[in-house]
Design a protein around this nucleic acid. Structure first.
Lengths: 256, 256
DNA sequence: CTGGTATGTTCGATATAGCCGAATACACCG
DNA sequence: CGGTGTATTCGGCTATATCGAACATACCAG
């Protein structure tokens, strides 16, 4: 179990929107490691272009090799192109925010976020953001179709802190909820991530019938309830079209 | 000098558009390393979410952590938003391919590529692609404004293979060319990357007057020469607008 | 022009941590 | 069922990452 990789990731994880630049000493302080260790580690990360620095002894930024690798990841994620097309249509039609997410461990990673043009920004979500899956619509859809044994293990380790009063915070409650999600073929999020915000989310299947992603509509509370069923069928239809394009034969699966 | 990082990158670099999935044995064979070593390394990369695998013992794909990190890189690259706006305008106006690139070492990395809608695809370039800088328009612009000492060192190591008969292949010729680029404030690429393709490229400055990126128009040979000067002033104008938006006071620099 | 306190890098002895071969386990195929 | 192909586990060896001290710079205030 190469600890070097882990340490390297702890360094990379420091870089964020708020703190996009880090010096050796700052990192050493933040991670409580000797400066010398950090200096060598970061210089090597820079050699591999995972980090870059403007001046020869200046502070570091994230390196373009990350973008490179990320692009080959995206370019080999087939459903993304069709998903984007359908998402654009959804936004145009409903004037609400649409998310596309994949499961990574027990966390949902937003692959794409589309908003009605010059809208009020919703919450903190952005493409590339990572969020515990148990407390969002897309997340619950993804968990519902993954191995329960693994999910419990992970969540027992990581805990289930509540983001709002409505967040599911026990494994039992989550098991019930996921069962419902599987049966009905979609998931609601009633202000579980953010107070005042509701979502409907539906699974995207590939040709083997595996759930590979989830798509959701996010709508402010007051606008959501009156038209709940309309939003639901809209997101189901969108998910179905993306799945079909990915080669999925739909008839056999629930919710359609 | 942590060799672990280097090895990890050698693994990640195997993943490409053509080969997006790798098993442990395949990687071991490709890198001529013991399976056991590779197994542990890749399993750890997966723990850090730099790799992911569908099944518990299946083949690996690139992991979403890469996308996550890449997004914070992009989101902290300020000039990108304005650059994209200007690029869209360029494409609409000239109906030609536009590239945005940054320098990484002595290689150019394409940050963005825009094409006239359903056009013939130009060459192999795509966002996220990496290309030796000495043989492209954007590359020469970027090299022209970076430290010559470092450039020579690197190019002596890496060599300067020619991609077309027109490629600059000696340091002396490159020095001359870069001098010209600095003086005139833009660079031409006359079929140096790809036979039949020409470019004009111009530098993008930040508020401190540092060149942070380059933008280019790529035009088929036969269309380029008749309208060379039009394309040139178009790309200069675009670069100027992006630079200004990035806080650059333009008057003091050549080429404008 | 100091002395003080930041910064980042270099070095070498130390012990840790990653490495590799052999053994294990599982899948698939004829 | 043996014969391939996967991938993982184990443990001993040694290479290798680590850490503190020393060394460079740079900056600021007295």
């Amino acid at each position: 179990m190469p600890r070097t990789i882990e340490k390297a990731m702890r360094v990379l994880d420091l870089f964020s929107l708020e703190c996009p630049e880090w010096g050796v000493s700052e990192v050493a302080r933040a991670l409580k490691l000797p400066k010398s260790t950090v200096s060598e580690l970061m210089s090597d990360l820079a050699k591999q272009r995972l980090l870059s620095r403007a001046a020869a002894k200046g502070r570091y930024r994230l390196g373009w090799r990350l973008f490179e690798l990320s692009q080959t990841l995206l370019d080999t994620t087939r459903f993304r192109i069709e998903a984007r097309r359908v998402m654009e249509e959804l936004v145009r039609c409903w004037q609400e925010t649409v998310h596309l997410a994949v499961l990574d461990g027990v966390q949902a990673v937003y692959v794409e976020k589309l908003q009605p043009t010059p809208a009020v920004k919703i919450g903190i979500s952005r493409a590339g953001a990572r969020l515990p899956a148990y407390c969002s619509g897309v997340g619950k859809v993804l968990l519902a179709h993954s191995e329960w044994k693994y999910v419990t293990e992970q969540l027992e380790d990581q805990g289930m802190p509540s983001l709002t009063p409505n967040t599911v915070t026990t494994l039992d409650a989550l098991a019930d909820e996921l069962k419902r999600v599987r049966e009905q073929g979609y998931a609601y999020d009633h202000q579980e991530t953010l107070v005042g915000l509701c979502c409907v989310a539906a699974p995207i299947y590939d040709s083997r019938g595996t759930v590979i992603a989830a798509i959701s509509l996010s709508v402010p509370d007051y606008r959501f309830h009156p038209a709940k069923s309309k939003y639901t069928s809209a997101i189901l239809d969108a998910a179905r079209r993306i799945s079909e394009n990915a080669g999925h034969a739909l008839e056999e699966y629930p919710g359609y």
